[in-house]
Amino acid sequence: MAQMTMIQAITDAMRNELKNDEKVLVFGEDVGQNGGVFRATEGLQKEFGEDRVFDTPLAESGIGGLASGLSVTGFRSVMEIQFFGFVFETFDAIAAQMARIRYRSGGVYNAPVTIRSPFGGGVKTPELHADSLEGLMAQSPGLKVVIPSSPYDAKGLLISAIRDNDPVVFLEHMKLYRSFREEVPEEEYTLPLGKAEVKREGSDITIVTYGAMVHASLKAAEALEKDGISAEVIDLRTVSPIDIETIIQSVEKTNRAIVVQEAQKQAGIAASVVAEINERAILSLEAPVLRVTAPDTVFPFASAEDVWLPNHKDVVAKAKQVIEF
């Protein structure tokens, strides 16, 4: 076992798959010699050569199309979008093309593509870099959307994503890249896509969340504990498809729930989770399921970020509102 940051675990997962399968390719802007602007691909070009780990011209739409095309010639692409705010440039390539290639070809073709990209707030990037656009991806049929909250999960989930035979959007929260280390096995392991994890058991309320908000929610759960409220925290890990079973099991036990996301409120993952709970467990509920989210504005300018982003206090307040309903 080694102590790894999330970024190291991500590099390790790609190294593992580059070794494991010669058809795996890693490419994007600055991923070669430079090792990526966050160093996620550090050392990979040196180890596996320019044929397998390479820089592309600067064009996200081109990168997405390249990955789609490589799919039908037998390759398994791990493409990087340097910041997820730039995904709009390649939205067609991802959501309209690779997401539908299996469907449109009646199962003849498929796109085993992993779209890796940093996203998320709290690190004061320039404009258009930090947006939480997972809701857009989740609304696109044919895509899986995975968001790890820890180094251990990142490695196991990324290996699974790369091995998946359909496109997976793998979103890496920038704030988690180097915020903490944990034990990560050096050998390979996989974690199932589409499976949530109960991060903390509790009996009074369920907090469903993902990404960096897992940590805000765990902190909130500790604060709630001091006030005699026992909160269960569920990390979705995959936001599309959502692991409904784990959520419903928990809600049937706690009878109350909130959903916490860093993204804006409108549409989005939290809204989906609330709807699923209402459709399947409304008779178990003692209170409405409420959401903690960012407001429905554009991702804010850097100096307003801290207030704009939901934090553990918002989670505590919302949980209490549900408890006291």
Partner: peptide, 18 residues
């Protein structure tokens, strides 16, 4: 910079959610 100021620049009219 305040979030409350920024909300005002989301559109000519503020919808109910905002």
């Amino acid at each position: 910079q305040k979030v409350t100021d920024l909300i005002g620049n989301m559109g000519e009219d503020l919808p109910a959610n905002l």
